[in-house]
Design a protein around this nucleic acid. Structure first.
Lengths: 182, 182
DNA sequence: AAGAAACGTCAATATGGCTGACATAAATTT
DNA sequence: AAATTTATGTCAGCCATATTGACGTTTCTT
C-alpha cells in the first residue's frame, strides 16, 4: 500500500476525465486493452440474447442448452455436460423445462439404449435462430470495416484463445472444421 | 415439429462423429462459427481468473470490481454501477468484502463530499495484476501467429462489437484512447 | 451374475443477481 | 433558510443458477 499516490490527493481528482492508470515501470506488458474489450464485447454480445430471452421466461442457461442441442443434433446428455461445464443437476432443471415446454425432445440411442440423444424441435430451432440472428447482426456490423481477411484473423484469434487439451466433442468438431471462406 | 428428420432416425446416429447441422435453405447466413468461438474463447478466458480467484475465496464479481477500480483509480460508486450494470445492492455486498479485506479503499470526493472515490490498495493491485497476467498469457499465445496487423484487427473487431450509445465513463475512455501500436 | 455406465432425482447450500423500502449526508434549488 | 435532489449505504427478501453428496433405474459390458 506504499506506492499508491492518493495519500496526497491530486487536485480536483473527480473533475478530471477518467483515465486508465498508466502501467508502472515494473509491470510486465499486460494486455489491459484486449482484456477490457473482451469484457465489454461479450457483455453486449450476450446482452442481445438475454433481452430476447426474457420474453420467453428463459435465461442464459436455457439459451446455451438449446443452442448446442440445435447445432449438434443428437448430442448426448454427457456431451452437453462437457460443453457447458456444469453438473448434471444444474443441467437437469433447465433441460426439464425445455423438454416440458417442447423446445427439445429426447430420443433413446439406437446403439446404446441408456443414452438420451437430444434434438431441438422446430419451436426450439426457431428460437435459437432468432437469437443467432440478433448476434449475427452485431457480428456483421463489427466485421463490416474489416474485410474478408480480417474476419479470418478474428476467427483465428478466437480459436487460439480456446484450450486445446481435453476438448469436448463439440470443440473437436469445431477445431476440425475447415475455416469457412466467408 | 414437422421437418426435423429424426422420426426415421439415421442409421447408427450415435456412432457417427458429431457434426454441426447444415444450414437449411431458408436460413439466413448466420455466424454460427463466430458465435460459438466467442462462447468458448470467453469461457476459457475467464476460466483463467476464476481458478485463481478460488484460492482467495473470491468470485468473478470481485474480480470485475477490483479490475475496474484498479485500472481507473478514483472511480465513483455510480460509475462502477454503470460499468458493471448491476444494482448498488449487488455491488454493495461485494464491495464491502473488498473494503473489509483491504483490497480497496474509499476516499471522500474533494469537490463533492458525498462521493466515495474508489482506489485499489497495493494488495488489490497485486491481485488484479496477477489475474491480468494469466489472461495476458492466453491473449499473447493467441496473437502469436497473427502479427501486429492482426492484433489491431482483433482490437478493431472487439471495439465494434460494443454498443456505442450511452457509453459509461470507462467505455468513453476506451473509445477515445488511441489504438496502441503494440 | 456382477459391475460399470448413462441418466434421473432428492436435498441442501452458495453465489450473485434482483426489487422495494428506508436512512443519511451533502449538494442544489427555491 | 427551507425544501428538494443526489450519492451512497443498508435491511429484508426473492430468484436463477451453480455446487456437492447420495441414491435409484435401466442398460451395457464382462
Amino acid at each position: 500500500m506504499a506506492d499508491i499516490n492518493f495519500s496526497n490527493p491530486l487536485p480536483s481528482a473527480d473533475s478530471r476525465p477518467t483515465q486508465a492508470r498508466p502501467a508502472p515501470a515494473g509491470e510486465a506488458n499486460l494486455r489491459w486493452d484486449i482484456i477490457e474489450l473482451l469484457f465489454f464485447a461479450y457483455r453486449d454480445f450476450v446482452g442481445d440474447a438475454d433481452h430476447e430471452l426474457e420474453a420467453f421466461g428463459f435465461g442464459r442457461a436455457h439459451h446455451r442448452v438449446m443452442h448446442f442441442v440445435c447445432r449438434y443434433p443428437g448430442l448426448k446428455v454427457a456431451d452437453l455436460l462437457d460443453v457447458l461445464r456444469i453438473t448434471k443437476q444444474s443441467l437437469g432443471r433447465v433441460l426439464k423445462q425445455l423438454l416440458d415446454e417442447g423446445y427439445i425432445v429426447q430420443k433413446t440411442g439406437n446403439n446404446d439404449r441408456r443414452q438420451r440423444l437430444l434434438y431441438a424441435t422446430a419451436k426450439g430451432e426457431a428460437l435459437v435462430a432468432k437469437l443467432a440472428t440478433l448476434q449475427t447482426r452485431r457480428i456483421d456490423r463489427a466485421l463490416e470495416g474489416i474485410g474478408l481477411a480480417g474476419a479470418d484473423t478474428v476467427r483465428r484469434f478466437l480459436r487460439a484463445m480456446i484450450d486445446r487439451e481435453d476438448p469436448d466433442k463439440v470443440l473437436e468438431t469445431i477445431f476440425n472444421a475447415p475455416n469457412p471462406k466467408e
